[in-house]
């Protein structure tokens, strides 16, 4: 079934269509959330939130973009909301906790990351956490999701030159941050 027809059926609150949509996009949503959050439990909750949002807001979907783009956009927003909320909690815990050493650790619970890469991935996530939100979204969608610049323009609703600029700034910021760490220096 084509996406346009699927949307029509979803707007008529067809349960079979919703199941079909879930089967088609659940993996994409789950993996995008996982790439942002790196924790399975959080990614599952974001996936649930995304499909609930799709179910509630499908009547407002005007078809200006594809349903896939729309779902990607919701997923990015939900994942970012979760990251923001985690940051707020950390900030609050910093004031409450006497020893904040354990707050600096980033947990990696991603089944797609090898054991040997987990430590590096944790550090990479901390570096990505230091980027501006839109730079992080562009970087994640391009390098982790494999989207093209053209697809990113649609998801982020920005121009191609803006995507290029975001990617350039993300790259130069990451390089700057890398110069202050010894993340890959032990490798030859």
């Amino acid at each position: 079934m084509e996406d346009a027809l699927l949307v029509l059926q979803l707007q008529q609150h067809d349960e079979t269509a919703f199941k079909l949509l879930f089967d088609r996009y659940a993996k994409m949503v789950y993996n995008t959330a996982l790439n942002f959050l790196q924790v399975q439990e959080d990614a599952e909750e974001v996936t649930q939130d995304v499909f609930l949002e799709v179910h509630h807001k499908i009547d407002q979907f005007e078809g200006k973009s594809s349903i896939k783009t729309w779902i990607y956009r919701i997923t990015c927003n939900k994942a970012l909301e979760r990251i923001r909320s985690a940051k707020r909690k950390k900030r609050f815990a910093f004031f409450v906790s006497v020893d904040d050493a354990n707050l600096q650790n980033t947990i990696i619970d991603h089944p797609g990351v090898d054991e040997e890469h987990k430590e590096k991935m944790a550090l990479i996530q901390r570096l990505l956490g230091g980027l501006a939100e839109n730079q992080r979204v562009a970087f994640t969608l391009f390098h982790m999701e494999g989207l093209t610049y053209q697809e990113i323009t649609k998801v982020m609703n920005i121009s191609l030159s803006s995507v290029e600029s975001l990617m350039f700034r993300a790259k130069s910021n990451l390089k700057k941050k890398l110069s202050t760490t010894n993340l890959f220096e032990d490798e030859k």
Partner: peptide
């Protein structure tokens, strides 16, 4: 270092 970072990031497998 940046290229190695990209290699690590792009080596991430899809999860079910």
């Amino acid at each position: 270092s940046y290229n190695r970072l990209l290699q690590t990031v792009e080596a991430t497998q899809q999860a079910e």
